[in-house]
Nucleic acid binder design. Structure first.
Length: 350
DNA sequence: TCTGGGGTCCTAGGACCC
DNA sequence: TCTGGGGTCCTAGGACCC
């Protein structure tokens, strides 16, 4: 076979693997990275090593629960700058491959566009290049578009290679629940099931116009396309331009004093202003240095877990900390409740 | 399972304007 | 004056992903 291919490269147990690289004695042990590494705190699992997953530990699970599932798990604090640095190294390796176009999707994954006669051999070559340069293992999904390549990765985990194209799409995916599709979560799965659409094959055979009426003019037909495995075919290497930047904090103890709430919102706003003025977060920074905010949004999670957002367009674009803090405080005043708060967030939109 | 933090995109209703 | 239609912006919320 020859022609253009899409590869989805996904690093295995990325955060845990980075920690094992610098703590080799942890190899093979149940390792959980998340929060400040303290399982008594309000925090969740960012990444669990495969050994930890054998005990039923999963991403998004409270650290406290992980500790109950496996008492001898090693908890480590998330060290985002370290992961960003390793990620940048991996992306450089990918960009250095001959004849590839790279679209970065996150710290631990990227799409590659390539023309080759032996795509399976090329995938192995990618895995070896990443491992040689960084010591990290990866899985490669191969497809005739980004959707199929991304889904293929799931069948290749860990360390494997899997091919998913129009040829084997229905054979591999047709009988699976719609949730197996990238872009369909629990809610949409349920909504579709209420309409009798339970499997990927059901969805593929559905009438796009009927779903448009039920699920929205864009999303309805889009879901049918997902069921058919149809998606974007060209990998786009254009650097990402962020649409927004924000910070949020969950308090270890609920905040009942609204003077304190105002103080926290102002502090978050100043921090966000500083970061967007500097051009982003972390070692490498993000593109769009110094771009001013046009809108500001405030998130309040009330006790126990009800989350509300308010936002406002700023009088003029700004990166000024005082202006952003003042605007965020005005938005905060528009929340009708003064109940105790568990989380606060401030987000700047460009 | 008492539930993080960083994002993106879509939808719908109302305001507002011509 | 009892009432159209289109376009765009603003805002809140939902859903999803890593």
């Amino acid at each position: 076979m020859s022609g253009r291919w899409v590869l989805h490269v996904d690093l295995d147990e990325f955060l845990a693997a980075v920690e094992v690289l610098r703590h080799p004695e942890l190899a093979g042990r149940p390792v959980v990275v998340g929060g400040r590494g303290d399982p008594t705190e309000r925090a969740v699992v960012a990444t669990a090593s495969y050994a930890a997953r054998e005990h039923g530990i999963r991403s998004g699970m409270p650290l406290r629960t992980a500790a109950k599932r496996c008492p001898d798990v090693v908890f480590l604090p998330a060290d985002n700058p370290a992961y960003e640095a390793v990620s940048a190294q991996v992306m450089d390796v990918l960009r250095g491959l001959d004849g590839v176009v790279v679209e970065v999707m996150g710290w631990d994954e990227a799409f590659l566009g390539v023309q080759t006669d032996d795509v399976a051999a090329f995938a192995r070559h990618v895995q070896e290049a990443v491992h040689a340069a960084t010591g990290l293992r990866s899985t490669v999904g191969i497809g005739d578009n980004l959707l199929r390549a991304k889904i293929a990765t799931g069948f290749g985990k860990p360390r494997g290679v899997f091919v998913l194209t129009a040829q084997n799409w229905m054979e591999v995916m047709g009988h699976r629940p719609t949730r197996a599709l990238w872009g369909i979560g629990v809610r949409t799965e349920r909504t579709l099931a209420e309409r009798g659409l339970r499997t990927v094959a059901d969805l593929a055979a559905a009438d796009p116009a009927a779903l448009a009426a039920d699920l929205g003019p864009a999303m309805g037909p889009h879901f049918v396309q997902l069921g058919r495995g149809i998606g974007r075919e060209h990998v786009d290497p254009t650097p990402w331009v962020p649409r927004s930047h924000g910070r949020e904090t969950t308090f270890q103890t609920d905040l009942g004093d609204w003077d304190a709430v105002r103080g926290e919102v102002a502090a978050l706003a100043r921090r966000v202003a500083g970061e967007i003025a500097a051009g982003g977060t972390g070692a490498g920074g993000i593109s769009g240095a110094g771009r001013p905010a046009r809108r500001v949004g405030v998130t309040v999670r009330f006790v126990p877990f009800t989350t509300r957002t308010r936002s406002a367009t700023l009088p003029g674009p700004t990166t000024d900390p005082d202006a952003l803090a003042a605007a965020a405080l005005e938005v905060l005043e528009r929340f009708p409740s003064r109940r105790a708060v568990r989380l606060l967030g401030v987000r700047a939109e460009f």
